[in-house]
Every structure is written in C-alpha cells, then in structure tokens.
Amino acid sequence: MGAACDAVALMPAPPVTVPRATLAADASCRVGYDLAPARGAIEINNLSIIFGQPGKEFLAIDRVSFAIKPGEFICIVGPSGCGKSTILNMVAGFERPTEGSVTLDGVAITKPGADRGMVFQQPSLFPWKTVRANVAYGPRMAGLLDRDAYCLADQYLEMVGLAQFAGNYPKTLSGGMQQRVAIARALVNRPSVLLMDEPFGALDAQTRAMMQETLLRIWADNKTTVIFVTHDIDEAIFPGDRILVMSASPGRVVLDIPVTLRRPRSTDISLDRLFLSIKKRCLEIIRREILSAFERQAQASESNHS
C-alpha cells in the first residue's frame, strides 16, 4: 500500500482548517506504519446528564467517571436506555454534559470534530456521493486537494477490502459493506478516537462475525483508541481490552473489567475458559441490575398507588 501515492508525499500540505499534526503523514498516503500514537486519552469525570424540561427532568447518566488510555479498545455494554450511546455522544461532542467533564488528551470537548471518528448503527453514508467520495470527504474538509483526498480514500477502501466498489453509490452496497465504508471514512481522518455506536447491530449474525474480525485487524494496524458500544456481551468481550457494564435509569458504571485474552483473537475465542468466565461475571451483574431496577419500579408504582 502507498507506492501508488508516493508523489503525494512531496506535495506541501495545504492550509488545514483543523490543525492536526498527523495530517502531513496522512498526505503521504502511508497507511498503518504510524503505530501507537500517544494520543486518544479520554477522561470522563463525574459526568451527569439530565434530559427533559424543568419539572420533568430525567437523570440519564449519574456521576460516571472513567479514564481510557491511548490506543485502548474499550467496550460499553448495557441494556437499552442505560445511556451508553449518550456517553458516546458526549465524547463526539453532539451533546453537552449537565455536570462533570469529558476531556480528550486533556482538552475539554465542546463540539464535534474530525479528531473523533464516529460510526453509527444506521447507515450514514452520504447517498449522493460515491463510496470513494464518501471516504475522501474528511480529508477534503481538512483542506487536502481533491486528488490527495481521493488517493487516501482508495487506500483506506483497500484496507476494508472494498477498493473495487470505489465508484459505486452507497445504495448499491449491502449493509455490511456500507458499514465497512463508514469505518474507512472515519479512520481516514486518523482520529484520536474511533466511536462506534452498535455499528453491527443491524447486520445478520454471519456478517457481524466477519465485521468484528475485520474491525480487530484494522484496529491492530491503526492502534487508535476505540469506544465500542453494544448490548451484546459476546461482541464486547471479543475485541475489547476492557469492558464497562452499565446499569439503566440512572445510567451508572457497575462493572469495569479488563479482558486479558491473548491477541490476535479469532471468533473461536468465545469458547475460551477466560472468555466464558468474563461473560458469566458480566451476565451476573446485568441480571442483578435488571432485577433491582424492576424492584425499584415496583416500589415506585406502589408508592404512586398508595
């Protein structure tokens, strides 16, 4: 990879609207050699989020704190409504905390930016752009010349195995292929963090397993920090360095557990004894949390009736 685009390395980088040190390295079209960047450290401190109008407030996140090391692959699992997507949206900069802080490499996050790549569950490719133009979009926005942006796009498409579909429009691709393009589109910006909000939730089981392996391979090459949100425990243990289990209403972190399984991993690791013991631990905690949530609801409805 990269030989075809070496000429680009001689091009002076054009003025960049989002100043990022690694952009020049991007423009050289060298992919995957820039290992373990010392960035992508996330710190979430005493984060609380309240939704709704005054008088009808709803505590979505209750004093959550955790830190993520650069290059770490962290998975957040929990039932729907536990606020795991909300935390992701905070890091992305789409929403602001009611209390507490979210920082990336020591800087408070105030708005969305290209240093945080996002992959959504629903298809989010720009339907009016070709696959290549979708991937080239971020570099173009960062101020690269079109041909440099397209050169980078082709390399990242090759990385996700879709080089031959570069000229297609998104609607002609399957759901799994579209998500691979979305991953390439997020990674081509060399983000400090890759945020993934149930990215494979809409895919069938076989495609999902394949996508998980692809993602791990890409992550091994890119070594960016990943926050991966899912409600599927298997999907969380398989790629993760660490798992955060969240409880619902209000959203809190109830378990923070490292996954010390050897790498590289393949899907048959789900039969490993360590994998199963981690899974058992998570399931127990989730079960306990769901039961106590039911009890709280029952008490609440009783006190309403009396």
Binding site: G93, K111, Y137, G138, N189
Partner: peptide, 8 residues
C-alpha cells in the same frame, strides 16, 4: 452529525 464528526 456524520458530517460534523468528519470535520465539516
């Protein structure tokens, strides 16, 4: 949102 996260 996707466009914002890509630095538009």
């Amino acid at each position: 949102r996707a466009a914002q996260a890509l630095g538009t």
